[in-house]
Amino acid sequence: MTTTATTGTADGTAEAARALPGAWTLGLGRGALEIKQFVRQRDAMIFTFAFPVVFLALFASIFSGSVENTGVTASQLYAAGMVAAGIMSTSFQSLGISIAVERDEKVLRRLRGTPMPPAAYFLGKVWMVLATGLAETAVLLFVGSALFDLDLPSSAVRWLTFGWIFALGLTGCALLGIAISSLPRSGKSASSVVVLPFLILQFISGVFIPVNAIPDWLLNIGALFPLKWMCQGLRGVFLPESAAVLEQAGSWEYGKVALVLGAWVIGGLVLCLLTFRWKNGRDG
Rank of each mutant, 00 (worst) to 15 (best):
G22A: 07
R40Y: 09
F51M: 11
E102K: 14
V270S: 13
L33K: 09
A10L: 11
A44W: 02
I97A: 05
A119N: 08
D43Q: 15
A131R: 07
A119H: 01
M88N: 03
K228T: 09
S181G: 10
L123H: 04
K256Y: 10
F162S: 06
R158D: 14
R30D: 12
E68G: 15
L168H: 00
F198L: 06
L33Y: 14
W127R: 08
T13Q: 11
P210C: 04
L246H: 03
L269P: 10
V207D: 01
A223E: 08
L170A: 04
D43K: 12
N69W: 14
V101Y: 08
V265N: 06
L123Y: 02
D216G: 12
S91C: 03
A80I: 02
T3V: 15
V237K: 06
G144T: 03
G8Q: 15
L123C: 03
I209G: 03
S251Y: 09
E34L: 06
P153M: 06
G267C: 10
V207A: 00
Q248H: 13
N220Y: 13
S89D: 07
A74V: 14
V101T: 08
G236C: 01
F92W: 11
L273A: 08
A244S: 09
M88Q: 04
C231Q: 06
A79F: 03
T70F: 04
I200A: 05
A258G: 06
I62G: 15
G133S: 01
L246A: 05
I266W: 09
V207L: 00
G233Y: 01
E34V: 10
V193R: 03
E105Q: 13
A32W: 13
A10R: 12
G169R: 00
G187A: 05
K279Q: 14
S94H: 12
L183S: 10
L147V: 14
A146Q: 10
V83Y: 00
G177E: 02
R282I: 15
W24G: 10
F276D: 00
P115A: 08
S94T: 09
A80R: 03
I221K: 04
C272G: 05
Q232N: 05
G71C: 06
F51L: 11
G250Q: 14
L152M: 10
S182W: 03
T2P: 14
S75W: 11
V195D: 14
G233H: 00
A74C: 15
K256Q: 14
